[in-house]
Amino acid sequence: MESLYAIELRKITKTYGKEKQVAVDEVSFHVNKGELFGLIGPDGAGKTSIFRILTTLLLAEQGEAWVEGFEVRHEYREIRKIAGYMPGKFSLYPDLTVAENLNFFATVFDTTVAENYELIKDIYIQIEPFKDRRAGKLSGGMKQKLALCCALIHRPRVLFLDEPTTGVDPVSRKEFWEMLKKLKMQGITIIVSTPYMDEASLCDRIALIQYGKILSVDTAENMVKNYPEQLYAVKSNQMYLLLKSLRKYPEVLDCYAFGEYAHVAFKNAFEAAPLEAYLRKEGLSEIEMKAVEASIEDCFIKLLKS
């Protein structure tokens, strides 16, 4: 069956336990074919549950979902043939070597390493020097690369990556996103979840999620463009005092730390002089102010607070 989207969810709801704690709350969105789609939200937002529903590991209580046109409840066998999945936690056999892990997953998917070697070549050559090492003895970055190879070994049409960069240092994270870009060029649809807001701009489109609800789905660019207020970045010699002072300032609508700056939104038009005078009076120095464009993190904060 030919479908319009690579992934589609319609009002998917999933609850857990006797108390019916809602993990996923009427979630609807779609992922286009060949897209690199990001599901961005903190821990416990419902990202993993959505991934498990899409990969046919969990059944949703309500709603419908399709992967490449296959319905997740009844056509799970088809989906399992075309989906590649890398769960959040380490999911290799620590007592098997790199090569053994890869060969094993290849046969599980009824293929061989040689058959799809082209696809994983770029990633695999980085871990090839360690191919006889047990997977449990690899470094974090290496494990992640091996897990990605294993998820790709059967040339899946849709690749599900559940928090692949969580707990990984910034250098390895960058490398990982480079790999994803290359895979995208091979025509694989990729859906990736992450708690890191700064990874949003690396995706074609993103969905922001919290408490099981989708807050917004769009390109990162559009989200930023549609941010309602003008944001200003204010810096001084002391962050905590700056934040406390700004919160007391009557014109301030919202303010929070953002890296070395505090991001501030004002109720009315921004006037630099009185604010600077006020801050000096509060005992701050080295004051610097500028208008800034909102980031995805600003958007997320805005959506969470509204």
């Binding site: 046919t56 066998r77 399992r80 769960p87 999911s91 056999y93 997953f105 998917f109």
Partner: peptide, 13 residues
């Protein structure tokens, strides 16, 4: 526990 069961279940095996 190691999460490999998830991967195996998602496979056509």
């Amino acid at each position: 526990e190691t999460g490999t069961m998830e991967v195996l279940l998602v496979s056509p095996f």
